[in-house]
Nucleic acid binder design. Structure first.
Lengths: 210, 210
DNA sequence: TGAAAAATAAACTTATAGTATATTAATCAT
DNA sequence: ATGATTAATATACTATAAGTTTATTTTTCA
């Protein structure tokens, strides 16, 4: 088999396995999906699964990686057209919100939560850096704001990037987890609450705005 | 045995078990600590452990509950003396930060992360409401701010409470997780970064502050 | 056709939460 | 004190799932 064809086949197999795993993770959750399930659903033997991935965590991380790229692309597209800092900021928030709604499990991971807490695996999850891609996007966002003079003047670029990411992702995370509480206790829908929060938070970036 | 004595004994046993579990959780982590470990360390039989707690998760939740009370008390004490809204806000942040530093595992849980993802247990964790106690404390804080006219005038009390909690806890959580990143990439210590973030965030609560 | 590579089947190992059961020890009411 | 009730324990068991091993089958291609 030519090297070309072989590589293509391997990619094909990997994709099949990942697709099957994605489907099962979505339907039944990550913990409840077993390696045997994945093998059966992808129509490979378990041994083959372990040829292509070294552990369940490895599979999970590959999927997270894919989704992270998808998210980054969505944000990039959504922001590309806008030049106004404020509008970009809201678009960015919107993208994160829809991503969280569609893929809550992967969003959690992106935000740093461990989905997989096995005694076996070493939990070598990417504690790295919140997704390099997304960090870069926020950086560009803030740079734009600084250049346009849309932001307060005591901004530290890098620190502000992390600050925005922490707060915005935290707001979304908790809004999702406390949806019932918001519905019942606050006089708002989750969407209204998010708008309210994002708007308040925005003011911390621009400084006085009368 | 009188009901009084019996109850005291039961409390004694529960406490012993919880103390042992706490020690092991702290030293080895929650996942790596087995029920057998806890039984041995507390010097009870495993059967007895299951008399007092229905699952590992039950033990864990009891501990979380205890710590949550501790935290709430610390905040309450720290805030009690202050009447200024801004100072209270910073004290509140400080309390959370030290708590996170001392008990990162319990802090994560408080913020909503699952430490225990077993297939067995139903994960009935307290998705409830971020610790009723703490919510009440933040509510009092915001009420104080509103009364003193220290806050912007378009404040929705309950929504703002959740907003503060989400953002502040998110900032702390991620600052802890990205400590290395902050040290190496930002030109700051973690403490400086936190001060910076809390200060910026504060401005979103008071509105224009020239 | 036969050697090398890829894929598979099936049984096995290990680890741990939780259960079942039978036994022993402590307590109390009469 | 004794017999019944209750608490505690020892021990063995079940169930589950990740990951490994080994031997076998299938595919590829020189």
């Amino acid at each position: 088999m030519g090297a070309r064809k072989k590589e293509a086949l391997e990619q094909f197999n990997r994709d099949n396995i990942l697709t099957a795993a994605k489907e099962l993770f979505d339907s039944y959750g990550i913990e409840k999906t077993t390696m045997d399930d994945i093998a059966k659903h992808a129509d490979y033997s378990k041994s083959t699964i372990y040829v292509y991935f070294k552990s369940k965590e490895d599979i999970f991380n590959s999927i997270v990686g894919e989704y992270m790229e998808v998210l980054a692309m969505q944000i990039r597209q959504s922001i590309a057209k806008e030049k106004d800092f404020e509008k970009c900021y809201y678009k960015f928030c919107e993208c994160l919100v829809s991503f969280e709604e569609r893929y809550p499990r992967y969003y959690s991971t992106l935000v740093g939560e461990n989905q997989l807490t096995s005694r076996r695996s070493k939990n070598s999850l990417m504690k790295q850096d919140m997704g390099r891609e997304i960090r870069i996007l926020i950086t560009e966002l803030v740079e734009k704001g600084i250049k346009n003079n849309d932001m307060r003047d005591d901004i530290e670029l890098e620190a502000t990037v992390l600050y925005i990411w922490s707060a915005v992702s935290g707001i979304i995370q908790i809004a999702s987890r406390k949806k019932d509480y918001i519905d019942s206790r606050l006089n708002m829908t989750k969407e209204e609450y998010l708008r309210y929060s994002f708007r308040m938070f925005f003011d911390s970036l621009v400084g006085g705005r009368l």
